[in-house]
Design a protein around this nucleic acid. Structure first.
Length: 295
DNA sequence: GCGTCCAGGTCTACC
DNA sequence: GGTAGACCTGGACGC
């Protein structure tokens, strides 16, 4: 069965799907030939389904092979909208960048929506798996988590593991099977805190806390430092932080400083005029050429 | 094939 | 508040 979700006029499916590396991490998969995003989605407590997501005229087409009831369909719709950020209001960001020659392509391209997972928990685990390692190791860790612990759909695709499934594993499991190294105790502790109710990371999405305070909350999670917290803030829709990592620093140096190493403060000054949108302005600036032809 | 070096963020101890 | 060293893995490199 299939469903169609109307998209905002400024939405660009390609730019969103490939906004950052998340589409390469299970249980996301991206087929660049067909421009199809595949994602395993947990539609209720018992069932996960595979959703094939493609762009249609003025909407998103979501295809599932399973028959779903109305509640499961509503859950699927809500999660797809969340992942693609269809409810995000980009108008303030667009009005800010539209006045600048170097940035106004963002408006025309409909860029700026960063793909995210259905849950903050998944984004948090994945972010921890991006720290202090190569992208190939991140991919290995996430693949191992999903294939070892994810519940399986009717077409045998594993979803992202629940906090309960992760909390039930030993630290040794995370070291030996997931290859997460020193992150092993962090991942186990995080899952245990979420299961016990000590930590409710989903509430970060609707938190009233000012961003610096929320950032402090995030940094209390073991394994979450400056970069990881800023990255998570971006994924929940707060773009005050730049989330500078080695790739971004090198990329900025290449584009704006003739390849010379650049101090973080100089990068911060470069985007300061975008105020609470500076992290998004930076990200769009650095990924402009990821899509050859915008539509 | 083996050993060594290095990159990559965060944590902890220390000043 | 700032800094140094440890943490751990995989890739690059030299032998």
């Amino acid at each position: 069965m299939e469903l169609y979700i109307t998209t905002p006029t400024d939405f660009n499916f390609k730019r969103t799907a490939l906004s950052h590396g998340w589409a390469q991490l299970l249980p996301f998969e991206f087929d660049q030939e067909q421009w199809k995003l595949t994602r395993v989605v947990q539609v209720d407590n018992r069932r996960a389904v595979t959703a094939g997501i493609t762009a249609a005229r003025g909407s998103i087409r979501v295809e599932v092979r399973d028959r779903l009831g109305s509640r499961a369909m509503a859950s699927l719709t809500q999660q797809v909208k969340h992942m693609l950020r269809l409810d995000d209001d980009m108008s303030r960001f667009y009005s800010l960048v539209d006045t600048e020659e170097h940035f106004n392509w963002i408006v025309g391209a409909g860029a700026g929506r960063m793909l995210r997972s259905p849950t903050v928990y998944e984004d948090l685990v994945k972010t921890i798996c991006t720290t202090n390692c190569s992208w190939s190791l991140t991919t290995k860790m996430v693949t191992a988590l999903v294939t070892n612990l994810g519940s399986v759909t009717s077409d045998k695709r594993p979803g992202f593991p629940t906090p309960e499934a992760m909390a039930a594993q030993s630290e040794r499991f995370y070291r030996d099977e997931i290859r997460s190294g020193y992150r092993a105790p962090y991942l186990k502790e995080l899952a245990e805190r979420v299961v016990s109710g000590d930590l409710d990371v989903e509430r970060w999405l609707s938190s009233d806390l000012p961003t610096p305070e929320l950032r402090k909350e995030m940094r209390k999670v073991k394994g979450v430092g400056d970069y990881a917290a800023d990255n998570l803030l971006k994924l929940i829709g707060r773009y005050d932080g730049l989330a500078l990592d080695s790739w971004l620093r090198a990329r900025f140096a290449l584009i704006h400083n003739k390849g010379r190493k650049t101090a973080d403060r100089k990068i911060e000054r470069h985007y300061a005029r975008f105020k609470e949108w500076r992290g998004l302005a930076l990200w769009c600036d650095m990924t402009h050429d990821w899509i050859e032809h915008d539509e």
